[in-house]
Design a protein around this nucleic acid. Structure first.
Lengths: 151, 151
DNA sequence: AACCAATGTTGGTCCCACCAACATAGCCGA
DNA sequence: TCGGCTATGTTGGTGGGACCAACATTGGTT
């Protein structure tokens, strides 16, 4: 009777209590869920697109550079993602007449609608992601993560 | 007096309380720290290499497929990373005489030593990463993350 | 006018995660 | 025993997120 040779995916001891490892695993899980959600209901959009739409909705028309700074996305990535959003009619770009270097990005009605759709999808994913925790633990989790993330 | 036009990197409201967003930010920060650490003291190794060395140290010589299963790393990525580790003399690969498909991977002394070095680097990064939290909060954080990550 | 800084764009890199296909080797049931 | 299935290691590829370098254009400063 041969050995099965099918070790379950355990975790090396030196990893399983390290914060960076746990964060990495949590991120991998979160990322998988988000990818599946975007794949199923995202209409070809990804995380960058959602972040950009959210920033535009919250702070109104801005230059690409400002959008990049508020979202923490690199200028070059902002350019690429906005081109894709523009192709779907979700944002509009126009040269700032007061400063011809800048392009003012504006959320369209279609973009605002799409953002709401994505909100719903992402809210569902939050529940799935946080399923292992009780309501109280979720509170704690969000609080601790906020501390860990600021700057 | 012209407007500064330098918005600080805030976070859209619909993002800042979502668990997946916070995890993504925490992971980005953790990843930056780890990258910097590996860059400075990692001798060209990366996360995959550390995970593989750790698994070999803990569970002894194993086939590549088993190492991949225990670490959660894809077979193909295991192959590539092991080739790099082998080139540095940190692991050895030999065909399993009892099953010529399999390659048994063994940690060398140099590999074990290197693993200890990396442990020290990564421990330092844990402190840096967790700096915003009190000791008690760190305990809570690790506990909650473990729940969230399970399987 | 000369210099420097900001902007948008192009075109890269890197790491992690994942997938498809393939040759080889072992296994198992008919 | 043969045929088919699975496991293994390898090659090569995809995709997302995060970055970086260089460049032309435009503004602002001195």
């Amino acid at each position: 009777m041969p050995l099965p040779h099918r070790p379950s995916p355990r975790t090396p001891a030196r990893l399983q209590d390290r914060a960076t490892w746990l964060v990495s695993r949590a991120h991998a899980r979160s990322f998988r869920l988000l990818n599946a959600g975007f794949e199923a209901h995202g209409g070809g959009l990804r995380g960058y697109h959602y972040r950009l739409l959210a920033a535009l909705e919250e702070w109104g028309p801005s230059s690409q550079a400002d959008v990049g700074r508020t979202t923490g996305i690199d200028r070059s990535d902002v350019t690429a993602a906005l081109t894709e959003l523009e192709a779907q009619g979700l944002v509009e770009r126009s040269v700032d007449p007061a400063n011809k270097r800048r392009k003012i990005v504006t959320l369209t009605d279609a973009g605002a609608t799409r953002l709401l759709d994505l909100d719903a999808v992402i809210d569902g994913i939050q529940r799935e992601f946080l399923a292992p925790l009780t309501a109280e633990q979720r509170e704690q989790f969000l609080g601790l993560m906020s501390l860990l993330v600021e700057e």
